[in-house]
Design a protein around this nucleic acid. Structure first.
Length: 429
RNA sequence: CGGGCUGUAGUAUAUCGGUUGUACAAGUGCUUUGGGAGCAUUUAGGCUGGGUUCGACUCCCAGCAGCCCGACCA
């Protein structure tokens, strides 16, 4: 990914009007700002700016997955139906959101909505002893889900990029300790992406695999889920398991819980031997006895995360990207047609480039100052640096944070110091 | 999948059973340049297929597409 870009060369353009066919704020803002393009209902293309954000989210997740010992792979979207028949997940009555297709010879294929089956199948080639375990394997991969109804803009699509990790263990104890590590890793991800303060660990239904699962839910009225939050302990319960029995088991008092709408931004759960058994993923222990491998599954939808940030971190003028995932660190604006001012702005641009600071340079001619400001607010890049006759007269560059009302005049040197990425916030061990 | 609503230019909208109007965007020229500029000029539109009618973008039917509510959602 290039470090910088001239806005005059960027093929996307901002729009003043919201698209008529989007009601969700996340899609409305992301489309107006030119981050995404709607291909059809629930299917969105990533444009240059959106892709930059997505890649940054991906890298944050990758760092945290590697920190807990994850090994990255990339599995196929096309799925062998035979494997899924062995686990009884091929039938449309069992999994109703399959996209299926056929080879020329009429053999049936699926487009993966999840990847337990192929990964377990791969590992039967490599795991035979307790010495081969534990393992945690993950990927960033496009998932296909034939949703009956796509909705909420980019939050619930039919095709989306997902990080899915699968873990493999010899014992419940080993699984449990890894599961706790993953809770921590997920928390770090949400903190680093800038929605940690709104995101809560939530008890949810366990579906067919186990009694409960855990979701990470980000509070916003735009959410599809309803959760009940205990603010003192920061623990929440999804409406789907909101029963007296479960509240009691979690030591939660019903009267203290507050109802919220929330977006599910992550889901972690235990698989036990649901897939290792039918697919024959077996290890031999120290005594020479054979057992099915125990598994866990850990998912995060990246597009949904991007949409959640747009939904939650925005104002009436546009998006407000956190520095950690902003498409660029600085939005440099050149105002006016004065040649000296232009030379000065070019100098600032070159200097930021040299210092490896990601900058989007609005060098466009024939665009009014007001329009450039409106664009800057809409795109939501954390720092706005203005070079104009006025800023030069006042002694330099006007630097303003997206979240602030007023800017200040800084020198080129001060600009570099100010916009350098924060040193903290990297992966902690 | 049940229910409801909607399809007019690249975008957002208006009117109309009888030559579709406007704004923004785009092109050209001039002016303007600190909060989505001005003047002039040009380009560009009725989802698809049937039906009713002298005549359909408008009414009717079907299809397709989109949105909303519900159901569903490892």
């Amino acid at each position: 990914m290039t470090n910088s870009m001239r806005q005059s060369k960027l093929f996307t353009k901002t729009r003043k009007e919201a698209p008529a066919d989007e009601v969700a704020k996340n899609a409305e803002l992301l489309i107006r700002a030119g981050f995404i393009h709607k291909e059809m209902a629930g299917v969105y293309t990533m444009l240059p700016l959106g892709l930059r954000v997505l890649k940054k989210i991906e890298n944050i997740i990758r760092e945290e997955m590697n920190a807990v010992g994850g090994q990255e792979v990339s599995m196929t979207a096309l799925q062998n139906s035979e494997l899924w028949k062995k686990t009884n997940r091929w039938d449309d009555k069992v999994v109703d959101n399959w996209f299926k297709t056929k080879l020329k010879n009429d053999a049936e294929l699926g487009l993966g909505f999840s990847h337990e089956e192929p990964l377990v199948n791969i590992l039967t080639n490599y795991i035979s002893s307790y010495k081969d375990l534990p393992l945690a394997i993950y990927q960033f991969q496009t998932k296909f889900r034939n949703e009956l109804r796509a909705k909420s803009g980019i939050l619930r699509g039919r095709e989306f990029l997902m990080k899915d990790m699968y873990s493999f263990h010899t014992s419940e104890e080993d699984f449990d300790s890894f599961y706790e590590n993953m809770k921590g890793a997920y928390k770090k991800i949400y903190d680093r992406i800038g929605i940690g303060h709104l995101t809560y660990l939530t008890f949810a239904s366990g579906g067919v695999f186990s009694k409960y699962s855990h979701e990470f839910q980000t509070l916003t009225p735009a959410g599809e889920d309803t959760i009940y939050l205990d603010e003192s302990s920061s623990v929440a319960v999804n409406q789907e398991v909101f029963t007296d029995e479960i509240l009691a088991s979690l030591n939660l008092e019903k009267s203290k819980l507050v109802e919220h709408k929330a977006i599910e931004v992550g889901n972690i759960f235990e698989l036990k031997t649901r897939f290792s058994e039918p697919l024959g993923l077996i290890f031999t222990d120290e005594k020479g006895e054979k057992h099915n491998v125990l598994m866990g599954c850990f998912g995060i939808g990246l597009g949904r995360l991007l949409g959640t940030v747009a939904e939650v971190l925005s104002d009436d003028k546009g998006i407000i990207w956190p520095e950690s995932i902003a498409p660029f660190a600085v939005h440099l604006l050149l105002l006016g047609e004065d040649e000296d001012v232009r030379r000065e702005a070019e100098k600032v641009y070159e200097n930021l480039l040299k210092n490896n600071i990601e900058v989007l340079f609005d060098d466009r001619r024939e665009i009014s100052a007001g329009e450039k400001f409106a664009d800057a607010d809409l795109l939501g890049i954390p720092y706005r640096a203005v070079v104009s006759l006025r800023s030069i007269k006042e002694g330099g560059i006007e630097l303003k944070k997206r979240i602030e009302e007023k800017g200040k005049i800084v020198s080129l040197k001060e600009l570099n110091l100010e916009v350098l990425p924060p040193s903290g916030g990297k992966t902690s061990k």
